[in-house]
């Protein structure tokens, strides 16, 4: 196989990564934007979504599609509920102090991760995709002055992967509509803009915080449910999404949703393509250094606009 099909295949895989990453990172970005806190436990909400998806799918039984559909609804809601409880019992009591929140969410990270280890165990478990048709992709070749179409071996994707990309797109549009067009979105934006004034205008800021924290976790969980038929559910799977979401949120500009989505697509695609040519560890080293240097030299993010 020549280089072209490789790149196409890598970008397809990258698009799936980008879709899932965008969902996860938008959750993190929402929490940071509205609440001004960094949720280090975000990756564990992702992991919890995947593990709960396995649990729901397994206890529902029947056709894979039924279990998956149930997981798609139940797992994010359960995770959101857990996040709301964490917000009300822990974050609210330390008054969302930025530094103490980071320490507390590190604690929550270990609690969620280790409780999962104790109950679910150290095994990686798969969830069956609801549908999984293999789709071969044609490639064009220039032979003797005319185009030829052929199907290179190994160049294929599945209907499920394509629908993951579509589903993520729909959810992202939904989040944007909610933020831009609904009452609750308006309240969230008002809280984001100025917490004190919002409070003075009678906006129940603490309830908004709880909803936002729940939503952020729910989005991560949703992303995990979508990816779990491709990857497997494992109690340590939260580390990479956390790191990548951090990268995306910081490069996209802290708290900016369009920037986050754009950065997710950029990072997701380049991750897929870079790991074809370089070792994944080297790619990760470069990515983490990039984040650190962006924060040092361009704190508003690569696409962000300087505020204040």
């Amino acid at each position: 196989m020549e280089i072209g099909p490789y790149i196409l295949l890598a970008s397809l895989e990258g698009a799936v990564t980008a879709a899932v990453l965008a969902l996860t990172a938008v959750g993190l970005s929402l929490v940071f934007g509205v609440m001004r806190v960094v949720n280090v436990a975000h990756g564990e909400f992702f992991m919890l979504g995947a593990v709960l998806a396995w649990w729901v799918a397994q206890s529902v039984g029947g056709h894979p599609a039924v279990g998956f559909a149930a997981a798609l609804v139940i797992a994010p809601l359960l995770v959101a509920a857990i996040a709301v409880v964490a917000d009300m019992t822990v974050l609210k009591r330390i008054e969302y102090d930025p530094e103490r929140t980071i320490v507390a969410t590190i604690g929550i990270l270990y609690i969620i991760q280790q409780v999962t280890l104790m109950t679910y165990g150290p095994d990686a478990r798969p969830v069956e995709p609801p549908f999984n048709t293999r789709l071969a992709i044609p490639w064009f070749e220039f032979v003797d002055g005319k185009f030829q179409m052929y199907w290179p071996w190994g160049l294929s994707t599945t209907s499920y992967k394509l629908s993951v990309i579509a589903a993520a797109g729909v959810v992202l549009v939904g989040v944007w509509l909610m933020m831009a067009r609904t009452k609750i979105g308006l309240l969230m934006r008002a809280t984001q803009l100025d917490r004190e004034t919002a409070l003075a205008f009678g906006i129940p800021v603490e309830r908004i915080y709880a909803i936002v924290f729940g939503m952020g976790a729910g989005l991560a969980a949703l992303a995990a449910v979508l990816i779990v038929p491709i990857q497997q559910a494992h109690y340590l799977m939260g580390g990479d999404p956390l790191l990548l979401s951090f990268i995306v949120v910081i490069i996209g500009g802290l708290g900016s949703l369009p920037g986050t989505v754009l950065a997710a697509i950029l990072i997701g695609l380049s991750d897929g393509i870079i790991s074809v040519f370089f070792s994944p560890t080297l790619a990760k080293i470069l990515a983490t250094l990039l984040v650190a240097l962006v924060l040092v030299f361009r704190p508003q993010g690569l696409f962000g606009v300087k505020t204040r």
């Binding site: 320490v103 507390a104 604690g107 929550i108 609690i111 969620i112 409780v115 280890l117 104790m118």
Partner: peptide, 14 residues
């Protein structure tokens, strides 16, 4: 799952 202790300690301390 001994890191659970560390997690609980972090939350309780904060």
């Amino acid at each position: 799952a001994y890191m659970l202790i560390a997690g609980v300690a972090l939350v309780v301390l904060t």
